[in-house]
Design a protein around this nucleic acid. Structure first.
Lengths: 236, 236
DNA sequence: CCCTTTTTAAATCCACTGGTCTAGACCCAT
DNA sequence: ATGGGTCTAGACCAGTGGATTTAAAAAGGG
């Protein structure tokens, strides 16, 4: 258990930025002001990916605003490699949508180019230490966006309007099976009732949800917060 | 434009905590150490809701761990009132799931009872100023949980595995209509082709997606990132 | 205990769905 | 030009889905 050594080892960093001026500046900053080791730099995302595969750094500082392959896609690819490489997104803008998407695909930090150099170093230190770092101004922006995206979708179901609430328990069970793509026959077997009974329930469900067929019923259920929100997600 | 006055006005606060000892302590802290005005306190969520409707405070400090009606539900109700009341969640535990759910339903801050009193005051100040405040230790926890929930669901689609990528353009159009609950006849009309052609396409889709009926096809499409990710969300 | 709601079930009937085979027209690339 | 993939479309058939009516047993609340 030689834990001390692990922490003393200088974390290796790769910088990616299509602006060479800025790249050099950051490189110098890191080399002078910190203990980190800049093992490589790249001015395009595709080159960066190869370098990352080769050097296996602990940290990647990735500019988001780049031509051709953009930084977000690159971060997603790095995450997919699953090498435990921790990426920090870097841009000039505090666009909440960008921040949200970066954090969603797995960036471990997000900082602005306009931020003080000390904060950049601090961010790298935090991320290298295994934490996720977002400056409070950006995290505030993130949360506003995060909450808004849920208000739009969650608050529209006002309980009385949600027709799902009028279903009986048995009807819910049947609908649950329908949302798994089970046929009438299958539902009958799983619930130990006859197929005609299933049809009765399904018909009642259609009337209560004001739809005409199972597909619409399933869509209504999934869109209005049914129990069965298994693998549902938001687009990148 | 008498902006100055707005900012000088003491923000009114309501405290909610089933532990009376803690409630009194926090009340005293706020009254002594800050400029905020504790207009009321409550030891249960249901009483709190009535008080909030009556006093219309700017800030509500809500304990999450309470018997009967829990704090999260109470926060959701307050948000539903849409009175611009900003709530701060308060608990003894830094459980990431709790933090995630609190932020999701609209809490503007989240702090631990074990945190220094100065941090509590600071949180109220930030939230009163319109910001969202999460201490960095908690925001780190939040993001880990946030990213994990997306890894489980997003990374499983590995492009080659995603059967949706094998569909032709026309088949995608047909599937898109199926995910809206349109019948064969409807699809035929919308795409200006015969119903039999629609059947052919649908059959090809079933084979490519390895399913047996439209419901399963729709579910596959929705769960594997089809264009059509309209109103999809995560459970509270 | 009665009334209501829920759950169960049957019969009938028709429309819609889905499987299979066949085949022409079109586009694109080798 | 020949071959592969796509889009179109027909025929035929089996099965499922869905509407409607009727009704009885079970559960639950006042």
């Amino acid at each position: 258990m030689r834990r001390g050594l692990e922490f003393k080892k200088k974390a290796r960093v790769i910088l990616v930025d299509d602006n060479y001026e800025h790249l050099s500046g950051v490189r110098e900053l890191i080399e002078v002001e910190s203990d980190f080791d800049v093992v490589a730099t790249a001015t395009s995302a595709s080159v960066a990916i190869s370098l990352i595969k080769k050097y296996r750094p602990e940290i990647v500082l990735m500019d988001i605003n780049m031509p051709e392959k953009d930084g977000l896609t690159a971060i997603a690819e790095i995450e997919k490699l699953d090498l435990g490489i921790r990426t920090i997104a870097l841009t000039g803008y505090d666009d909440p949508d960008l921040i949200f998407r970066a954090m969603k695909i797995g960036a471990k930090g997000y900082i602005l180019k306009t931020m003080a150099s000390a904060q950049l170093i601090y961010a790298i230190e935090e991320v290298a230490a295994g934490k996720i770092y977002l400056p409070s101004t950006l995290s505030s922006r993130f949360f506003e966006y995060f909450q808004k995206s849920f208000r739009d979708e969650t608050q529209t179901i006002s309980d009385e309007e949600n027709l799902l609430n009028y279903l009986t328990q048995r009807e819910e069970e049947v609908l649950d099976l329908l949302t798994q793509g089970v046929t009438y026959k299958g539902v009958a077997q799983k619930l130990f009732i006859s197929e005609t009974t299933v049809k009765t329930h399904v018909n009642n469900i259609f009337q209560k949800l004001q739809v005409n067929d199972r597909t619409q019923a399933v869509l209504y259920a999934l869109n209005n917060g049914f129990l069965n929100r298994r693998k549902v997600k938001i687009a990148i």
